[in-house]
Design a protein around this nucleic acid. Sequence first.
DNA 1: CCAATACTATGACATAAGTCAGATTTTGGC
DNA 2: GCCAAAATCTGACTTATGTCATAGTATTGG
Lengths: 211, 211
Amino acid sequence: MSKEELKRVSDSKTTKSLKKGETIFGEGEKLNGVYCVRDGVSKLSKLSANGKDQIVKLASKGQILGQRSVIAEEKVNLTAVAVSDMEVCFIPKDSIVETLQTNPNFTMEVLRHMAHDLKEADDVIVNMSQNSVKQRMAAAFFYLRNSYGEDKNGFLNLILSREDISNIVGTATESAIRIISEFKKKGLIKTLGKKIGITDEKGLMGIVEEF
Amino acid sequence: MSKEELKRVSDSKTTKSLKKGETIFGEGEKLNGVYCVRDGVSKLSKLSANGKDQIVKLASKGQILGQRSVIAEEKVNLTAVAVSDMEVCFIPKDSIVETLQTNPNFTMEVLRHMAHDLKEADDVIVNMSQNSVKQRMAAAFFYLRNSYGEDKNGFLNLILSREDISNIVGTATESAIRIISEFKKKGLIKTLGKKIGITDEKGLMGIVEEF
DNA sequence: CCAATACTATGACATAAGTCAGATTTTGGC
DNA sequence: GCCAAAATCTGACTTATGTCATAGTATTGG
């Protein structure tokens, strides 16, 4: 993006603080802009017919929320809720559309990004349909570590409720808890309150790759 | 697209016929262009760790295969196999890239298309993780009818093997067969060889929406 | 600081769905 | 048309996972 464009986008931005648990936008809303995460983490989920949430994606610093619906000019299909305290900035639709129309490099960048997201979505579909809950749980811990890292004591930086974990994995909360207990008993992970840490990387990876 | 561009793309196209079962491209390949389906249907699947295929998408007339990997400049993550006899045309990468760079409208079109695909992928993820095999089977029949229609006798136009159906739904072939038998017994569908037809729309929709 | 509320944990049980084995039917190549 | 190979179907069984109940444990707001 050129300096001018950067300036224009920057000018049109308004930042907003959100407390953990607050909603950024909800399924079915019409967005007139996108949100850029400056700090904190958001969960993007979709309510299924049976009343359960499925978390499709987590978004943190630098990631954009709502671009799909703005680009496709459709209502949002996901609900975005803050998983931790957050700071987001809002970029109005017009600003996005104009930049898309005038800056081919930006557009290509968005395109590449979407292509990548689409590939990831395919992986999730296969993971969901072909792996056991145990495998998905183990994979989720690696995903969380890769994406958000761990603290000096070896606990995952991103602290999620057991319910959120179960909604990522797509299972009942009780099942998630049971599997956490089992992994703990086997020495694959450790817990401290809500905090979870991987202790036996190799063993846990073995679960992921089990067939 | 302008006439000139259309002509250039048209010139660079080469068409190719494929028999049912033939592979268009395989997971891990590097594509130097995309394929446009002129006739027939292709399944896009991904092999899971346990050796089972998961069909992520079906593509028919007018749809493009391989655009993701060409745009993201990554290896393909899916295998494309002909489900019926097909006719596809190949459009070289250069031609695509050039059009993307010179024609913003085309790029926006691709972008919108991808945004839509991404939304659909989210729906599939939720469907896979939150619905029972029975629900997914019922939903699959509606999907097939919406996408490919039915013949004058009320059978789905697209004829798939039970194995392909199970790979779409993400279940064991035996389970798919069992559920087909059950639906048939309940009068929800009818079968004739491989052919399947919806006979009780309301009843079948009831299964989809069951909770 | 305590009560109210939400979250975590565990047991008992029901059920959905996968696996294995074998029978029957269909299909395609010669 | 015939035979081998592939696909479909059904039964018996096992296992994974969800559901319901209940108890213990944190958190939070007043």
